[in-house]
Amino acid sequence: MSVLTDHLPELVDGLLATCLLTLLSCAGALVIGVVVAAARVSPVRPLRAAAMGYVELLQNVPLLVWLLLFVFALPEVGVIFPLFTTVVIVLALYEAAYMAEAIRSGVNSVGKGQAEAARSLGLTTTQSLRYVVLPQALRAVVQPISNIFIALTMNTSLAAAVGVVELTHAANRVNLVEAQPIPVFVGAGLAYMGLTLIIGLSAGFVERKVAIVR
């Protein structure tokens, strides 16, 4: 355990970077996911097709490929962001594809009578989605969304492959110095487990608070 305490500051810095990466990416994925899900159920056919194309494209190309593309290929055409920002953007865009499908399943769970009642009150399709359908859909898919957040937390470890100094990258650097992979990576694994437990417990609390009584 001394190897962990000896390098605690850099491991904590890596953990904090992972937490920030997770929070920013989750927020971006949720916002983009809501927009894409709304497009997926839109009555406008080109909008539905574009949203479906987005989901299929992002889900069927590995995340690491997207990271490498954004980090190394985009600068070649003059599109340059700070490395940390680039990884946040990629994670948000990638997980938004899964988020959109989860939210769409929530939209499908809302009774058709809800949308019909909204239209009878004079609400447009956009207003119906915003004020009636999406609030109920989001309440119905808290657990699936939390599962996506947990997957995103695990996926932040791939940022180490492109040079972001997060928890996995910090653990790897400590191991290169100390050559003690078992305590170093077990410690990092326990830290990831702690983050996912926090997300899971928080999701359970939120789910109970916003549960729809039928």
Rank of each mutant, 00 (worst) to 15 (best):
Ser2Val: 09
Ser2Ala: 12
Thr5His: 12
Thr5Cys: 02
Thr5Asp: 10
His7Val: 05
His7Gly: 03
Leu11Tyr: 05
Asp13Phe: 04
Asp13Leu: 09
Leu15Ser: 08
Leu15Val: 01
Thr18Met: 10
Thr18Asp: 11
Cys19Met: 11
Cys19Leu: 15
Leu20Ala: 14
Thr22Trp: 05
Leu23Ile: 13
Ala27Met: 12
Gly33Thr: 12
Val34Pro: 03
Val34Trp: 05
Ala38Leu: 14
Ser42Asn: 12
Ser42Cys: 11
Val44Asn: 10
Arg45Met: 12
Arg45Trp: 11
Arg45Ser: 13
Leu47Tyr: 01
Leu47Ala: 15
Ala49His: 07
Ala50Asp: 00
Ala51Glu: 13
Ala51Thr: 14
Val55Pro: 04
Leu57Phe: 10
Leu57His: 02
Pro62Phe: 11
Pro62Ala: 11
Leu63Gln: 03
Leu64Ser: 07
Leu67Arg: 00
Leu68Tyr: 13
Leu69Thr: 06
Pro75Cys: 10
Glu76Gly: 15
Val79Thr: 03
Val79Met: 05
Ile80Ala: 09
Ile80Pro: 00
Phe81Trp: 12
Leu83Thr: 10
Thr85Glu: 10
Val88Phe: 00
Ile89Met: 02
Val90His: 01
Val90Trp: 02
Leu93Lys: 00
Leu93Ile: 00
Tyr94Glu: 00
Glu95Pro: 01
Glu95Phe: 12
Met99His: 04
Met99Tyr: 08
Ala102Arg: 06
Arg104Leu: 06
Ser105Lys: 00
Ser105Asp: 01
Gly106Cys: 07
Gly106Asp: 07
Gly106Val: 05
Val107Lys: 02
Asn108Glu: 15
Ser109Cys: 11
Val110Asn: 13
Gly111Val: 07
Lys112Trp: 05
Gln114Asp: 09
Gln114Asn: 07
Gln114Ala: 07
Ala115Leu: 09
Ala117Asn: 00
Leu123Cys: 04
Thr126Gln: 09
Thr126Arg: 10
Thr126Asn: 06
Gln127Tyr: 06
Arg130Phe: 07
Tyr131His: 14
Val132Gly: 00
Val132Asn: 02
Val133Gln: 08
Val133Asn: 10
Leu134Gln: 06
Pro135Asp: 13
Gln136Ile: 01
Val142Ala: 02
Ile145Met: 14
Ile145Tyr: 01
Asn147Ser: 15
Phe149Gly: 08
Phe149Arg: 00
Ile150Pro: 05
Ile150Arg: 09
Ser157Arg: 06
Ala159Gln: 03
Ala160Cys: 13
Ala160Lys: 13
Gly163Lys: 11
Gly163Ser: 10
Val165Tyr: 03
Glu166Gly: 04
Glu166Ala: 04
Thr168Ile: 05
Ala170Glu: 03
Asn172Ala: 14
Asn172Ile: 05
Leu176Gly: 13
Glu178Thr: 15
Ala179Ile: 13
Gln180Asp: 11
Pro181Ile: 03
Phe185Gly: 05
Gly187His: 09
Ala188Tyr: 06
Gly189Arg: 04
Leu190Gly: 02
Met193Tyr: 15
Gly194Phe: 06
Leu195Gly: 03
Leu195Ile: 15
Leu197Tyr: 15
Ile199Asn: 10
Gly200Met: 14
Leu201Cys: 07
Leu201Met: 14
Ala203Glu: 10
Ala203His: 08
Val206His: 07
Glu207Cys: 06
Arg208Gln: 15
Ala211Gln: 15
Arg214Leu: 13
